[in-house]
Design a binder for these strands. Structure first.
Lengths: 232, 232
DNA sequence: TATTTTATCAATCTAAAGATGTAAGACAAA
DNA sequence: TTTGTCTTACATCTTTAGATTGATAAAATA
């Protein structure tokens, strides 16, 4: 290996000045990291990120002024290959999920041992995504639950199962925004036949019009599912 | 602690008879687990699960006959508090994602050291969800990518931003399957006004009818997002 | 074989949706 | 003050959508 390992440049964002100082000292002790800047403001932090282009950002996500999660999202949108690790005081499943969803490369609790933080930084610096085992477990509980709820609603009774193969084809075209004429053309059948199918679909799905039919289809696992209830 | 720790009952499902025997021996050596049954067939495995009600199932998901993932899903549907750990020969991100999505409590590679498997079983037996660190990293790359694609498509140019507040209200009601009369009633305005709004919405979203408008809204981050491309 | 389901098509009718033009009052920005 | 946008509203007209009834042939099923 000819190229030696470059020291990773780190930006710290934490509204708690004391904690900020502590983390800075901790990291400075590590030979492989340079703290290029620190700030107690998320907004300033975003600007510092643009200016210094650090490799890693440690972002406190429990800040009053600006939401740390929002800041992460904005930094991710810059698409500058800056890897953000979320620092949080809480091991709340929802927080962990949202942080990982918007692109955080790690999530470390402030209460965790400093060695854990350094390890996370090492992993993230190496291009990996790191979550402590305990938090991973939390994450997955939340993750699996969000799918469980879906299944329940669709497990009740999915009226889509009553549709014939042809009706499914027609419904599929409906969910793509086609009108009668267009569907007739694509299936090589007459418009009146399409009307018959559509009417039968309405009966079976117990809806009144095509919009409701399309909505029913999308909400009940037709083609592609919805991941509802999960938004940042 | 008055109650002593009950030995966990384990069911093994693996179409590779040799591997099955090996894992069985390995687990039998552990004092805390009883192998209650083994089978090389996923279908039989499901029936054995119903019969023996094991605490844990080790399920090979790379089986030709029946898909192991499907088998996991069916077992999860039983809702019998049977915790399934997926065994796989591949650390494929998509496989890991799908296994965890449908409710697997763990995912262990066959190539991993036996100690790793036992550790996973210990964690899962204790009610946790366990993924080896390396696989967790894989999982999250896949997970985050699935959201990144969404953002791209909605970042191109979201025509929804051109809508006025009132038009958004109307569109929201459209995406709930309301007709003109219903919308007029809910917004306390006349039906003709609703028509005006709806027509303006069509212009702005560049669509021809309400179904297309609803589809555009749903596909472009209106109210709740879609997690497309990810299906089991 | 008899029966049911499915897919096809038609005619007819009503209701709803969509296109277009016009316009007045409110309100904010220039 | 003027300009522009937003919200409201109406009239008119054309086009779709949807409901209903009826019918035929093929295919699946009992």
């Amino acid at each position: 290996m000819r190229e030696f390992k470059r020291r990773s440049r780190v930006l710290l964002i934490d509204d708690n000045a004391d904690h900020l100082r502590g983390v800075k000292e901790l990291i400075t002790l590590e030979s492989s990291y340079d703290v290029v800047a620190t700030t107690t403001s998320a907004n300033i932090g975003i600007n510092l990120a643009k200016k210094y282009r650090p490799d890693i950002i440690l972002m406190d996500i429990n800040m009053p002024e600006k939401d740390g999660l929002q800041a992460i999202q904005e930094i991710e949108k810059l698409d500058m290959d800056i890897r953000v690790i979320a620092l949080s005081g809480y091991d709340d499943a929802d927080l962990i999920f949202r942080a990982m969803k918007i692109g955080a490369k790690g999530y470390v609790l402030k209460t965790m041992a400093s060695a854990q933080l350094i390890y996370a930084m090492d992993e993230v610096a190496a291009g990996k995504i790191y979550l402590p085992t305990a938090l991973t477990s939390r994450f997955f509980e939340y993750f699996q639950n969000s799918f469980k709820e879906e299944e329940k609603s669709s497990a009740e009774e999915n009226l889509l199962t009553y549709l014939t193969a042809r009706e499914e084809e027609v419904l599929d075209l409906l969910t793509q925004g086609n009108n009668y004429k267009s569907i007739a053309g694509k299936l090589f059948i007459s418009e009146t036949t399409v009307k018959t199918h559509v009417n039968n679909i309405f009966q079976k799905l117990q809806v009144n019009d095509r919009t409701q039919a399309v909505l029913y289809a999308l909400n009940n696992g037709f083609a592609n599912r919805r991941l509802s209830k999960i938004a940042v």
